[in-house]
Write a protein that binds this DNA or RNA. Structure first.
Length: 424
RNA sequence: GGAGGGGUGGCAGAGCGGACGAAUGCGGCGGUCUUGAAAACCGCUGUCGUCUUCGGGCGACCGGGGGUUCGAAUCCCUCCCCCUCCGCCA
């Protein structure tokens, strides 16, 4: 959420953000409501002040004055009994609207409606040119009996998978590789619950907008689609010391997504599934745009270093305003080359949020000069499996169906250079 | 799942209908003293909102929410969290 002051002082900038991010919100209605709330709050506070004065007098009043004082207090109490619920209602309405206000996108980010308007920033690596009939990842998995993608459907429905044998080993290797990588860079590994309360989802901004993307477990518990939900809410309500910052987490969690808006898309294989695993980079830093920008660069560089270590050709894409999500200032994606589809496919997504999430989650710190401020947050994927297996298998496949293991991953796989038995 | 006990300021811990935004101790900050430090002594030390002549005024907050009352940290309802014991369990 944005500070109310920003809405009042820069309504045009906010209006433009609402338009660029295609949010359904009437800012003028919100501002009018804010005016009403302020006026009513003034009235209520004045009434309470009067009552407080009378109360103090009542405590020490002589008996003959007491009855009159109590009577006047009672009248004020009656008026308050009307106004206070009104104030509560209006405040609650205003709070609901405030949750819909998007963050203002960075001035240099591409303007557009959807992913088609994203702008490629750079490419790394060369897409492989196969001299043989290359297989897609599903064919490779079936060839080596590395997964059950059919039968598992009768157990758990569509968009599910069951990895087997070497693929489980490979997945374990990727997690351990990512864990070592992040820890070497000063991130604290944290393995946290995959479910969280509604408040945590509101905190990140996944709610109220994205409810249909999330499995609901209980009246107040939902399965989260990213460790970001838990990590952002972990320090909710705290006032951290400036010396605590930056906080760097490498959050490991099982992630669940309903993929409700993606019916029929990418049904094949491991690209888009309901349950997956992710090591997530998460940073809480001081409220400083330059520092935030440096962390953005760092998180992006970490993501790139990880896919480079996996020897995967990729590109970096700047996500346009319409596709970056309401809370974001910037969102850049790393997309890895998927040979079978001849496209780059998102495997990582770096987000810069400023204090938009921290305001929702009430996540603050005390500056060196004693000022309490909302912190800034950022996040990026480190490794998400099984999606990363798609480019990994396809890019590194050999003519005989085996899959070459990138050197950096070999220590995690008993120094294996190849996975799978040669065919024919 | 059953039975109890608790949630008060950075921490510990009183208060259990009016003088309580809250005793006391610790910690922290400033000062006196000291060559310096420690000790001792003195003062200050929460967050949010709102108004401001920028001195401060006012309102709210004692786990969250609601209620009773002229008045609630204190009484009632409800939810959440933590602890102890029993049962079950990877």
């Amino acid at each position: 959420m944005l500070a109310m002051d920003v809405l009042v002082e820069q309504p045009d900038a906010v209006r433009r953000a609402i338009e660029l991010k295609a949010v359904d919100l009437d800012l003028d209605q919100l501002l009018a409501l804010h005016g009403q709330v302020k006026a009513l709050l003034g009235q209520v506070e004045e009434l309470r002040r009067e009552r407080n004065v009378l109360s103090k007098q009542t405590a020490s009043a002589a008996d003959d004055e007491r009855a009159a004082l109590i009577e006047r207090s009672r009248q004020i109490g009656g008026t308050l009994k009307e106004r206070e619920p009104q104030l509560r209602d209006q405040q609650a309405q205003l709070d609901q609207l405030l949750l819909l206000v998007p963050n203002i996108p960075g001035p240099d980010e591409p303007i557009g409606r959807d992913d088609d308007d994203n702008v490629e920033l750079r490419r790394w690596g060369e897409p492989p040119k196969f001299t043989f009939q290359a297989r897609d990842h599903v064919e490779l998995l079936e060839l080596h009996d590395w997964a059950d993608l059919e039968r598992i459907g009768q157990v758990a429905g569509s968009r599910t998978y069951a990895l087997k044998g070497a693929m489980v080993r490979l997945e374990l290797a990727l997690w351990r590789f990512a864990a070592d990588f992040m820890e070497e860079r000063g991130f604290t590994l944290i393995d946290l619950p995959s479910f969280a309360r509604e408040a945590a989802f509101i905190g990140t901004g996944h709610f109220p907008g994205g409810r249909e993307e999330v499995y609901q477990l209980d009246e107040d518990l939902y399965l989260s689609g990213t460790a970001e939900v838990g990590l952002n809410y972990l320090h909710s309500g705290e006032i951290l010391a400036a010396s605590d910052l930056p906080i760097r987490y490498a959050g490991f969690s099982t992630c669940f997504r309903r993929e409700a808006g993606a019916a029929g898309r990418e049904m094949r294989g491991l690209v888009r599934v309901h349950q997956f695993y992710k090591v997530e980079q998460y940073v809480i830093c001081a409220a400083d745009r330059e520092e935030s920008a440096r962390w953005f660069d760092t998180l992006l560089a970490n993501g790139e270093a990880l896919v480079q270590a996996l020897e995967l050709p990729y590109r970096v894409v700047r996500t346009c305003t319409g596709a970056m999500g309401a809370g974001k200032v910037r969102m850049w994606d790393i997309e890895c080359w998927v040979p079978s589809q001849e496209v780059y496919r998102e495997t990582h997504s770096v987000s810069e949020i400023y204090d938009w999430q921290a305001r929702r989650s009430n996540l603050r710190y005390r500056d060196e000069d004693g000022t309490v401020r909302f912190a800034f947050t950022l996040n990026n994927t480190a490794i998400a499996t099984p999606r990363i297996l798609v480019p990994l298998l396809e890019v590194h496949q050999q003519a005989d169906g085996t899959v070459r293991v990138p050197e950096r991953l070999r220590p995690y796989l008993g120094d294996a250079e190849l996975l799978g038995s040669p065919q024919e």
